[in-house]
Design a protein around this nucleic acid. Structure first.
Length: 277
DNA sequence: GCCCAGGGAATCG
DNA sequence: CGATTCCATGGG
């Protein structure tokens, strides 16, 4: 990857394995959307970003080199070699098909708190509606940033009541959100500490929060704590494991199982017939 | 109208 | 332990 200053921000090229749609619309994050002119616009924590594909590269609009090097480089996981990771995967036709389908997908290294709340909201829910609930959460309780709103802090949410959260229309998940906010803001659950724990300890620690079970914990570890071996088993992946990878376990995919999982997840959602709906 | 969604808690046996 | 049931809401 080569990073250039550009009149409108930062331009990167000579990058392999990076496609905006495959990365920002593959179900790992909920705060980016396509703009009318074909770019992407969204938020990460209290940062806002507009980006677009341009001349075989990507333009990050209106940011400084410090913004890019100090935040977005890590956020987009640009220092990881995805081709090398793909070649570490077991040789399997369905896995090859999945990785060929969306080679430009990268795992975003999101904020752990934002990821925790986002995937609590995701449970037994569909992606368009998850996005709507998170948008209302930010609008009601987040800080205004540019034309939108940042993600509210655990402290901001910890002082709220169930009634306050009725504007979200997210059903029974409200008490899960409040429990998470209270435990994180009080320090009873320390997300930075959990991120550094051995995997099974980290799983158990996350599951002390109400509404966090095995699947949500796995998502927080993978998308919010950079633990690439974490392997969320949602309904799609369970279907794929049964139909396409009989005999496989998450460990069969190796040290970067979570990344394999994401290739498979997005492939199955875009090609439901091949995962036998 | 109906089925289902990036599940988890509570409650059985 | 595993299996079942209920949970609130609305997208497609």
């Amino acid at each position: 990857m080569i990073v250039h200053k550009h009149p409108n921000g930062i331009f990167i090229n000579n990058i392999t394995d990076f496609d905006l749609e495959q990365t920002l619309d593959c179900g790992q994050c909920f705060r980016f959307s396509k703009t009318k002119d074909g770019g992407w616009y969204g938020f990460a924590g209290n940062r806002v970003l507009t980006l677009r594909s341009l001349n075989a590269g990507v333009l990050f609009e209106n940011i400084s080199l410090d913004d890019f090097e100090g935040f977005w480089r890590q956020y987009f996981d640009f220092d990881r070699d995805y081709a090398a990771i793909r070649s570490s995967f077991p040789d399997h036709p369905a896995l090859r098909e999945s990785t060929n389908f969306n080679r430009g997908m990268r795992i975003l290294r999101q904020d752990s708190w934002e990821t925790l709340i986002s995937f609590i909201i995701s449970q037994n829910n569909n992606i368009p509606r998850i996005k709507g609930i998170i948008e209302r959460l930010c609008r009601a309780f987040g800080e205004q940033i540019a034309n939108g709103f940042g993600f509210p802090s655990s402290t901001a949410l910890s002082v709220l009541t169930k009634q306050d959260l009725e504007v979200l229309r997210c059903g029974w998940r409200t008490e899960y959100i409040l429990d998470a906010a209270q435990k994180v803001s009080s320090g009873q659950v320390d997300l930075a500490e959990i991120a550094a724990m051995p995997l099974d300890h980290a799983r158990k620690a996350l599951q002390t929060i109400k509404g966090v079970g095995p699947k949500v914990a796995e998502c927080v570890l993978l998308y919010g704590m950079g633990r690439m071996e974490a392997f969320p088993l949602d309904v799609w992946i369970k279907r794929a494991m049964k139909e396409l990878f009989p005999g496989f376990t998450p460990q069969s995919f190796g040290q970067y199982a979570g990344i394999a999982q994401q290739y498979i997840f997005h492939y199955c959602r875009c090609n439901p017939e091949s995962c036998r709906k």
